[in-house]
Structure formats: C-alpha cells, structure tokens
Design a protein around this nucleic acid. Sequence first.
DNA 1: TATTAAATAACAATAATTATTATTTAAGGA
DNA 2: TCCTTAAATAATAATTATTGTTATTTAATA
Lengths: 136, 136
Amino acid sequence: MKDTTNILRAKGLKVTPQRIAIYTMLSHTDQHPNAEMIYRTLEPTNPTLSLATVYKTLYLFKSSGLVQELNVGEASARYDAVIKRHPHAVCTCCGKVVDLPADAFEELRHYASKLTDFSLESEQLIFYGKCPNCKS
Amino acid sequence: MKDTTNILRAKGLKVTPQRIAIYTMLSHTDQHPNAEMIYRTLEPTNPTLSLATVYKTLYLFKSSGLVQELNVGEASARYDAVIKRHPHAVCTCCGKVVDLPADAFEELRHYASKLTDFSLESEQLIFYGKCPNCKS
DNA sequence: TATTAAATAACAATAATTATTATTTAAGGA
DNA sequence: TCCTTAAATAATAATTATTGTTATTTAATA
C-alpha cells in the first residue's frame, strides 16, 4: 500500500514487504492483535514471514512511535496502530479489547501531576468487565 | 504473625510458614515486588522456600482476593497487598512503582459505563514518567 | 497421637520473547 | 539497469517468566 510505504519512509525506516504487511494489517483492524495473531493472519499470504520478524518489527514500530503496545494482563502484549493514548475496555470472558475515546485522560493527567513528583509522560487506563456478547 | 494467620484463616486457607512469610512481607512493603523479588527477599530466612511455591501462593492469594496483581508493562507481574483498586505511577527510568489515592476511579467508572455496553468489574490506571530521583 | 487431604520442594515443561548467524534484499550511486 | 553494502530476514537456538508433575512433607482435625 502506498500509504504504509510513505509512513515508513517518513520515519526513516527501510521499506520491506514484511513491514508493509504488518503495518497495513495493524492499521486496518480494531482487534488489538498480539504478535502471534499478526503472524497467523499474515503467514498465509506472506509465506516467507517468520515470527521473529514480527516481534522485531513490532519493537521497531513501537520505538519509532508507529504503534503502541498494550498490556492488558495477558501473557502476551497487544498492539494498536492508533498511537494517541486512549482508554481500553477488556472483556474478562472472551478477551476482546475495545477502544474508548481519549478525552478521559485530560483531567487525569492534571490529577496525577498534582499527586506525584513524577514528570509524567503517558498513562494507561484499562477497564475490565464483560462485553455485551458475554453478558448474555 | 498472628495477624497474617487470622487473615489466611478467614479466607479458609491452610496456614503454612510459606504463606505467612509471603503475605506478611507483601503487607509490609510499598515496593510492589514481583515473584522473583519476593523469593529473593524471603529465601535467606526461609531456606526451604521454593520459587514455584511463591508463584502458586501468589495465584492463590489473588484468587482469594488477598492481593492484587499489577501489570505495568514489565515482563513479570507485580503484587500489592492493598486490594482496593488504586492508580499507580511507574518510573520509566528505575522501574519504581508508587501508589496514588483511589479516588480518581469514582468518576472514571461512571464515564466508562456510559461509553461501553460492558458490565464493568474493575479498572487499572497507570501513569508513566520519571520519579523525583531519576528526574535529576 | 494418628490420619489424611492438601501443600511443598525439586525439577520438568511450556510459552512468550529475544539473541545469533548465515543469507537475502532494499536503497542509493555508478 | 546493475553494483555495492549496510541493514533486514529466516531459521533456529537461547532466555525468561510461569505453570505442571510428582514424590515427600505437613497442617488440621479426629
């Protein structure tokens, strides 16, 4: 995809088929997949892809600010191509992760900076509960 | 310790020296240690303790509601004997984790339940930044 | 004190992630 | 378009956190 190529170039990253596939997939899903899910999704159409490359590419993207890593308490990290920090809701039954609008963070930042001597950089807000499907 | 013994009994748990040591240590620290730290702290005075027991005991305590597990994005989980949900601040430099007062959660719960169809159970709020020591 | 179900220590196994290395390839210049 | 080369990749080994297994020990209760 042209878009992905330009985004990678803008970060000074070499453009490879693997990177294009991973970024394009991440920016077209709202599933918050982990490395394994990304690999299993892309492997059929990218038979030469290896799982180690997925991990390295995610690390690279994270370091370049192209994706954010999300830690919801599972064994493996999830990834999100939306880089603006925003709250998430995690279903404690099926594991689904959904996005919430970002505006909760504005007041929170204020609140937290009053309470600590930290110089704050970012924040993570996760709600846990049962999603509509699992409730019933 | 008498206190710990009673707390374990109240949850219907068998009282063993290992459980007493782990719970007593957790309830007397604000360090939010992980399993390895707990093991290394207790092993000198409890030479018969094994790391697997630490993990199993933490799982038991978590299931019984005696401790909460805290996932700040590190490889290993941290534990807190304060079971009321409260925000944490994590130093991105030295890894220190400090507690913040719980009252931020009241409005957040309200906010989140308006935004999702989830039946919400709990929440986790983590601020990342540099602690006073690491700032300078 | 004797009984017994449960807990523990020791260690094997697993799962997620990272490191290593030989091979391949993207990017830029001739 | 073809070279050159530094960087990326595939394959796989290694590591780290955590969980499973099992023989032995022990806390709780009779």
